[in-house]
Design a protein around this nucleic acid. Structure first.
Length: 826
DNA sequence: TCCCCATTTGTTTTT
DNA sequence: CAAATGGGGA
C-alpha cells in the first residue's frame, strides 16, 4: 500500500538499515571539533562526559542550550551514536526547532538531523502510533484538544445525571489531567482522589478513558500515560527502546512531571546514559504537574551521577543578575547556584510606579520609542530587541491598545491562538471528519454549521440511532436516513452532507484510516528531518499520484462545498472578513504538508504560532512563554500583589505557590541582557471595575544598590523608601516569615495609596441605576427602557420588574436596565 | 429551529 | 468588561 519500505524497529537494532549513517558517523570521528574550544570548562565537562548519568545544573543564561547542542554534536562526531540513536527531549517545539538548527550549524555540514529530537508529546505520538494496539487503540488515533475533551466530559457528566452547573466539566478535566500527569490510570487512582468530584471522579475518569478508546482518541495526557503503561506492561517493548535510544538528553528537567519522569527512568534504565539539564530556580510549571523534586533527587535515582554546574552567566549585566539573585534567595529548598558574570556594569534595574495601567502602557510605549531612537542616552535598539513580559495574558490588551493608537509595531506571542479560533476549529473538524469518519466529536461540531436545519432534536435522533446500532455518528446518520427517521429540510441537508463527506474522502490522498502495515508513516526516513517536516507527521505521502486533487485543493473544496465559506461571507458581524482571512491562512498552512493527516497531527501538537515576519516589532508575551528566551531590553509591568504574585496561585498553593511566583519573577528578570524595567500601577481595572493595587512584595526584595528608581513628574507611588531601606538581614527575616506586608516600602506604598485616594469608582453606563436606586422603585412608577421605551411598573420581585411598556407591551426586565423617567437626561 | 438579547461567569500560567 | 451561555420570542 505504501510505496516506500523502511526498516521497522525490530530490524533496527541489529540491522544494516542505517549503515550509511553509521559510516558517516565513523567518518566524522576524524573531524576536528572546534566547538569544544568555544566552551568554558564546566560546559566542556558536561559535553565530554558522554557515558553514565549526568545532571547539568544550568543557571539562567549560562549557555545550557549551547552545551546541550554541543553534546549532541559530540556524540555524533565521536561516532558514539548515530543520529537516530539519540533521544533528545525539549520542553517546547520552538526549543526543539532551535536545537535542530544549532546542531546542523555546529556540525557545519548537512546532516539528516536528529530524528528523535522533540517534545515529550511529539516523541510519544510517534511511539504510540507504533504500539497503539497494546492499549487498545488503532494506530490512526486522533488527538483531542482541550475543547474536545471538555465537551466529551460534559456529555459524560450529564449522562451520569450530575448537575453540570455544580460540577463543571472543566473541573473534572483538570482533575483528570492532574492524574494523568502523575501517571495514574483509573485503576491506580488512590481512593481519596477517586472520591473527588462529588464522589464520582474515579468512576467518571474510567468512563472517560473508555469513551476515548471507543472514539479511538487520546488526549494530551494520554500520550505519556499510555507509553508509560506500555513500557511497564511490556518489558520486551521497553527493552527494544532501551537498546535503541543509546543516549538520552533532557532539557528543562525541572519542568518534568511524574509521568515524564517515569517514562525517562524506564527508557534510561538499561545503559543510564542520560543527561538532564535544568535549573530548579526556573521551575514554573508546578501547576501543570511539574515536580521540582525530579531534579532534586536525580542523584538518588541515578547513583554515581555526575553533577556539573554551569554558573557563568553570559547574558545579563551584573546589576540585572544581582537583582534576580536577590529575589530568588527568598526561596527555600534550592540546590543553590552562584551566578557570576564578566560583563560590564551597565544600567541598574529600573523601577517605576504609575497611577494606573493605562499610564503604565503609555509610559512603556514612550520608553520603547525613546530606546528605539537612542534618545535614552543608550544605544539605539531595534524593536526586535525589546520585550514586554506579563504575568497573565489579559494584561496584554492594555499594551496592544496603546501601541495600536501610537502605531508601534508589536507582536503578541501566545495570545489567542490561531488554531483555537472558532472558524479554524470548525474547518479542522471538517478535515478531521473527512480523514476519519468515526470522529464523532468532529461530526457533532459541524453537523449544523453552517445551519442545515439539524437542531437539537435531529441531532438527538442521530445520537440515539448511532448508539443503538453501535456505530459512529456518520454511520448512524446514514442509517437514520435510510430508515426515514428524519424528514423535511433536515433530512435533505443531512443526506447532502453525508454524500459530500464520502466524495471528499474519496479525494483524500495519503494513508487513510486503514492501518499502514509497514509503519511507513511512523518511521523516520531522512525526510523527517527536512525543515518542512521537522515537527512530525508531515511525511511525504507515498503514491501521491493516485488522487485527482491535491490536499490543498481538497481543503478548499471542502470549505466551499460544505457552505462554510459562504456562511462567513454572508456574516454581517465585524469579525466576518477576519474569519475568512484566517481560513485562507489555514489553507495556506497546508502547503507545508503533503496530506491532511500530517497537517492535523501537526496542529494537534504544535500549539505555538510562529510569526517571523521581517518587520521589527516589540514582543509582548507571558513570563511563561518567555522561558528560554532573552532580550536586550525587557519590561516587566504589573508587579502588583494579587496580580504578580498572583492571588490565585497563593490561595491555591500557599507558600509553594508564592515560591513558584518568585521563580517566575526570577525568570522574568533574567531574560534581560542590558536593560530591565520593572513597573507597577496604583490602580487597575479588574473585571471592568477599578481596583487599587499594592506594589508587589517582590519589589521589596529587589536590592536597592542595583535599582534605579525612576521618578517622572506626576508619578504616584514610588517603591521603597530611600531612608528606611531594609538591610540584608532584615530582608532575610522578612523573607523567612514569607510576609512582606511589614516592610517599610510596603507601608509607605499603602500610606500613599490611601492618601491619594487611589481607588476611585468610575461611572459606567450599566450602573446608571445602582443597587440602592433599585429599591427605590415602587409599583406604578414610570420608567424608561433603552429598547422598549416608556412604561409603568406592574410588579416588583427583588431586582426584577414587570413593566407594562407603552409600545412594547408587558415585559419582565431587570431593574438595572430601566431608568426612573425622572432620571432621564434630556 | 433560529436569533437576539439578558444574564452569568470568569482571569493565571500551556505541552 | 468581555465572552459564553441560556431563555424567550419569531
Amino acid at each position: 500500500m505504501t510505496g516506500v519500505t523502511l526498516p521497522d524497529m525490530s530490524s533496527f537494532d541489529e540491522s544494516d538499515a542505517f549503515e550509511s549513517a553509521s559510516l558517516s558517523a565513523r567518518a566524522m570521528a576524524a573531524r576536528p571539533m572546534p566547538y569544544l574550544n568555544e566552551l568554558n570548562p564546566a560546559q566542556r565537562e558536561a559535553v565530554e562526559r558522554l557515558d553514565g548519568p549526568v545532571l547539568m545544573l544550568a543557571g539562567a543564561g549560562t549557555g545550557k542550550t549551547k552545551a546541550l547542542t554541543a553534546r549532541i554534536v559530540h556524540l555524533l562526531n565521536t561516532g558514539r551514536a548515530k543520529p537516530n540513536e539519540i533521544l533528545a527531549v525539549t520542553f517546547t517545539n520552538k526549543a526543539a526547532r532551535e536545537m535542530k538548527n544549532r546542531v546542523g550549524g555546529m556540525l557545519g555540514h548537512a546532516v539528516e538531523g536528529v530524528p528523535w529530537l522533540g517534545t515529550f508529546h511529539a516523541i510519544c505520538v510517534k511511539l504510540l502510533r507504533r504500539h497503539a494496539e497494546l492499549v487498545n487503540l488503532k494506530s490512526n488515533f486522533t488527538i483531542l484538544d482541550m475543547d474536545d475533551q471538555n465537551r466529551l466530559l460534559k456529555q459524560l457528566i450529564v449522562a451520569n445525571g450530575i448537575d453540570e452547573k455544580r460540577w463543571p466539566a472543566r473541573l473534572l478535566s483538570s482533575l483528570i489531567d492532574g492524574w494523568k500527569n502523575k501517571a495514574l490510570t483509573p485503576q491506580k487512582l488512590p481512593a481519596g482522589d477517586a472520591g473527588a468530584f462529588n464522589h464520582r471522579g474515579g468512576e467518571l475518569y474510567d468512563q472517560y478513558q473508555q469513551r476515548l478508546r471507543e472514539l479511538n482518541a487520546v488526549d494530551f495526557g494520554d500520550l505519556l500515560l499510555h507509553m508509560v503503561t506500555i513500557f511497564q506492561e511490556h518489558p520486551d517493548v521497553l527493552a527494544q527502546y532501551q537498546r535503541w535510544f543509546r543516549y538520552i538528553l533532557v532539557d528543562e528537567y525541572q519542568d518534568t512531571n511524574v509521568a515524564q519522569y517515569l517514562w525517562l527512568r524506564l527508557l534510561a534504565g538499561g545503559h543510564k546514559n542520560i543527561c538532564c539539564v535544568g535549573d530548579d530556580d526556573q521551575s514554573i510549571y508546578g501547576w501543570r504537574g511539574a515536580e521540582v523534586g525530579n531534579i532534586l533527587r536525580f542523584e538518588k535515582d541515578f547513583p554515581g551521577a555526575h553533577v556539573v554546574r554551569l554558573e557563568q552567566n553570559y547574558r545579563s549585566t551584573p546589576h540585572i543578575l544581582a537583582a534576580a539573585s536577590n529575589v530568588i534567595r527568598g526561596n527555600a529548598d534550592r540546590l543553590g547556584k552562584t551566578l557570576w558574570t564578566e560583563t560590564e556594569e551597565g544600567e541598574k534595574v529600573r523601577l517605576i510606579g504609575h497611577w494606573d495601567g493605562e499610564e503604565e502602557a503609555r509610559w512603556i510605549g514612550e520608553e520603547i520609542e525613546a530606546m528605539q531612537s537612542g534618545t535614552r542616552g543608550l544605544r539605539a535598539m531595534s524593536l526586535n530587541e525589546m520585550a514586554i513580559l506579563v504575568r497573565a495574558s489579559h494584561q496584554m490588551r492594555a499594551f496592544e491598545d496603546r501601541f495600536l493608537t501610537i502605531g508601534l509595531p508589536y507582536r503578541v506571542i501566545g495570545g489567542p491562538r490561531f488554531y483555537e479560533r472558532l472558524e479554524i476549529r470548525d474547518a479542522m473538524a471538517y478535515f478531521r471528519l473527512v480523514v476519519s469518519p468515526e470522529d464523532d466529536l468532529a461530526f457533532e461540531r459541524i453537523v449544523n454549521t453552517p445551519k442545515r436545519g439539524l437542531g437539537n432534536v435531529a441531532q438527538q435522533k442521530i445520537q440515539t440511532c448511532a448508539r443503538s446500532n453501535g456505530v459512529s455518528l456518520v454511520e448512524g446518520a446514514r442509517i437514520l436516513l435510510e430508515e426515514k427517521g428524519l424528514g423535511g429540510k433536515g433530512a435533505k441537508e443531512l443526506a447532502l452532507l453525508l454524500e459530500n463527506l464520502a466524495r471528499w474522502r474519496g479525494n483524500l490522498i495519503g494513508p487513510q484510516t486503514t492501518l499502514p502495515d509497514d509503519d511507513a508513516v511512523l518511521d523516520d526516513g531522512p525526510d523527517l528531518a527536512s525543515p518542512v517536516f521537522d515537527e512530525l507527521g508531515g511525511r511525504p505521502t507515498p503514491n501521491a499520484g493516485v488522487a485527482a486533487v491535491g490536499h490543498i485543493e481538497l481543503a478548499e473544496i471542502i470549505l466551499d462545498e460544505s457552505g462554510y465559506t459562504t456562511m462567513w461571507q454572508n456574516d454581517k458581524t465585524p469579525e466576518g472578513p477576519g474569519r475568512l482571512d484566517n481560513l485562507k491562512e489555514l489553507v495556506k498552512a497546508l502547503e507545508n504538508f503533503d496530506n491532511l493527516q500530517g497537517f492535523l497531527e501537526h496542529v494537534s501538537l504544535i500549539m505555538d504560532n510562529e510569526s517571523d515576519d521581517a518587520e521589527a516589532k516589540v514582543t509582548i508575551m507571558t513570563l511563561h512563554g518567555a522561558k528560554g528566551l532573552e532580550f536586550p531590553a525587557v519590561f516587566l509591568p504589573g508587579w502588583e500583589d494579587g496580580l504578580f504574585p498572583s492571588q490565585r496561585s497563593m490561595d491555591e498553593s500557599g507558600l509553594k505557590g508564592l515560591e513558584e511566583e518568585r521563580r517566575l519573577a526570577y525568570v522574568g528578570i533574567t531574560r534581560a541582557e542590558e536593560i530591565c524595567t520593572i513597573s507597577f500601577a496604583g490602580n487597575r481595572q479588574v473585571y471592568g471595575q477599578w481596583q487599587s493595587q499594592m506594589p508587589s512584595r517582590f519589589i521589596d526584595e529587589l536590592p536597592e544598590d542595583h535599582v534605579d528608581i525612576l521618578t517622572p513628574p506626576g508619578l504616584y507611588g514610588g517603591g521603597f523608601g530611600a531612608a528606611s531601606r531594609p538591610t540584608a538581614t532584615a530582608l532575610d527575616e522578612r523573607v523567612a516569615n514569607a510576609n512582606t506586608y511589614n516592610s517599610p516600602g510596603w507601608k509607605r506604598m499603602q500610606a500613599r495609596a490611601g492618601e491619594r485616594g487611589m481607588s476611585q469608582p468610575r461611572e459606567s453606563k450599566s450602573s446608571v441605576i445602582d443597587a440602592s436606586a433599585v429599591s427605590s422603585f415602587t409599583v406604578g412608577d414610570r420608567v424608561f427602557h433603552q429598547k422598549f421605551g416608556y412604561g409603568a411598573i406592574l410588579k416588583i420581585e427583588g431586582d426584577k420588574l414587570e413593566v407594562a411598556f407603552e409600545k412594547a407591551g408587558t415585559k419582565n426586565v431587570v431593574a438595572s436596565y430601566v431608568t426612573g423617567s425622572d432620571d432621564i437626561p434630556f
